[in-house]
Amino acid sequence: MVARRLSGAERLMAEAGVVALIAVVVAVFDLIPVGTVSLGARLALWLAGFLAAWLVYLAAARVGIAVARLMGLADYWGHALAVPFVGLAVTYGVLALIGGADAMFGAQFGAVWVQALLVAAGFFALFFVLYARAEQAPVQEAAQEAAPDAPAPPAPAPAVPGVAVSALHQRLEPGFPPILALAAEDHYVRIIADGKSALVLMPLAEAAALMPEGSGAQVHRSWWLAQSAVTGQRRAGRDLQLMLHGGMAAPVSRSRIPQLKALGWLSP
């Protein structure tokens, strides 16, 4: 079974749902004691607290990713860099609720910060595992609206399809395979390789600019393809699609057809 990739908005909703579910479990079983407080009060406290901490993490992660890229590290290090700052924000918030300014700057700050760091690190590890598993799922074809009318004979596949070396590879984990295509998903770009993909927070134009000049072209407002990965073309109703190594298909904008014909990507 082929898994459908989540869009950026769906990823945010999924993360919020996981955070809320954990907050409910913590409240129901009183895993983080807060004294003699009713279940309803615990549910309100932990749902509001966990979701607020998650929102703080989203903001801190943006800064962490920028720092990681500046240092030449993969984006997931940026998420890790955000953990201590999220713990710091949670610590100040909790202490402000229970004791005001005196508690925020009192002797118990260190102990509460350690607890907040452990919770933040636990969430980081959970989402790291969830997204790592999701990235192993096969990539679904981009367009399946209609059966092809008359597929053109595929061009001979190159020995190593895709772009094996690029500036974009520096944003990915070591050993990432040759890149076949880039697909925009809201504020993210999915980097597609043979049997593997990765999601990076950047515009499609920025990701395409990191690919070697002349190695590919943008064929649609949401798609960039490596020329060596294109194996043929087909019609799906009135729409034109380019076939990629591995059987994937990408849509072609009508406005880009003349340019692609001039580049020799499309048959006359």
Rank of each mutant, 00 (worst) to 15 (best):
residue 21 L to K: 00
residue 164 A to D: 08
residue 176 F to I: 08
residue 136 Q to P: 08
residue 65 I to H: 02
residue 173 E to A: 08
residue 132 A to K: 15
residue 101 A to Y: 15
residue 240 L to D: 00
residue 61 A to M: 12
residue 10 E to D: 04
residue 63 V to C: 10
residue 176 F to G: 02
residue 48 A to K: 15
residue 103 A to K: 05
residue 51 L to D: 08
residue 28 V to W: 07
residue 238 R to T: 04
residue 227 Q to I: 07
residue 139 V to D: 03
residue 18 V to Q: 02
residue 84 P to N: 05
residue 81 L to E: 04
residue 193 A to W: 14
residue 158 P to M: 07
residue 223 W to E: 00
residue 162 G to A: 13
residue 162 G to L: 11
residue 14 A to P: 03
residue 235 R to H: 12
residue 238 R to H: 14
residue 41 A to W: 05
residue 152 A to H: 12
residue 216 G to P: 01
residue 190 R to Y: 13
residue 224 W to R: 02
residue 53 A to W: 08
residue 206 E to R: 13
residue 250 A to S: 07
residue 71 M to H: 15
residue 58 L to V: 10
residue 8 G to Q: 02
residue 122 G to Y: 10
residue 68 A to N: 14
residue 134 A to V: 07
residue 172 L to N: 04
residue 218 Q to I: 09
residue 264 G to R: 00
residue 3 A to F: 09
residue 190 R to I: 03
residue 246 G to K: 11
residue 120 A to P: 01
residue 214 G to C: 05
residue 248 M to E: 14
residue 145 E to G: 11
residue 11 R to I: 06
residue 30 D to A: 09
residue 249 A to Y: 11
residue 234 R to L: 14
residue 46 W to F: 11
residue 138 P to Q: 02
residue 32 I to K: 04
residue 36 T to G: 07
residue 267 S to E: 13
residue 150 A to N: 10
residue 262 A to Q: 13
residue 108 Q to K: 02
residue 45 L to C: 06
residue 61 A to G: 02
residue 241 Q to F: 05
residue 167 A to H: 15
residue 48 A to S: 15
residue 24 V to E: 07
residue 242 L to E: 00
residue 58 L to Q: 09
residue 138 P to A: 06
residue 80 A to H: 12
residue 150 A to Y: 07
residue 142 A to P: 10
residue 101 A to R: 12
residue 59 A to E: 11
residue 115 Q to H: 08
residue 240 L to E: 00
residue 141 E to T: 08
residue 17 G to T: 03
residue 141 E to W: 13
residue 85 F to K: 10
residue 198 A to R: 10
residue 216 G to F: 03
residue 186 D to V: 00
residue 115 Q to Y: 13
residue 80 A to C: 02
residue 184 A to W: 01
residue 23 A to L: 11
residue 6 L to R: 05
residue 32 I to T: 04
residue 143 A to S: 12
residue 247 G to A: 03
residue 259 Q to E: 06
residue 267 S to P: 09
residue 170 Q to T: 13
residue 232 G to Q: 03
residue 41 A to F: 03
residue 122 G to H: 05
residue 215 S to H: 09
residue 3 A to I: 07
residue 222 S to G: 04
residue 24 V to S: 10
residue 70 L to C: 12
residue 161 P to W: 10
residue 249 A to L: 09
residue 48 A to I: 10
residue 51 L to T: 01
residue 33 P to K: 05
residue 6 L to W: 14
residue 126 L to V: 00
residue 71 M to C: 15
residue 122 G to M: 05
residue 97 L to D: 09
residue 46 W to I: 03
residue 145 E to S: 08
residue 68 A to R: 15
residue 13 M to C: 03
residue 50 F to H: 04
residue 216 G to K: 01
residue 52 A to W: 05
residue 18 V to M: 03
residue 127 F to S: 07
residue 124 F to G: 00
residue 226 A to L: 04
residue 184 A to G: 06
residue 129 V to Q: 11
residue 165 V to H: 12
residue 56 V to W: 15
residue 74 A to L: 13
residue 220 H to Y: 05
residue 72 G to W: 10
residue 229 A to H: 11
residue 71 M to Y: 15
residue 105 F to G: 00
residue 261 K to M: 08
residue 227 Q to P: 02
residue 72 G to N: 10
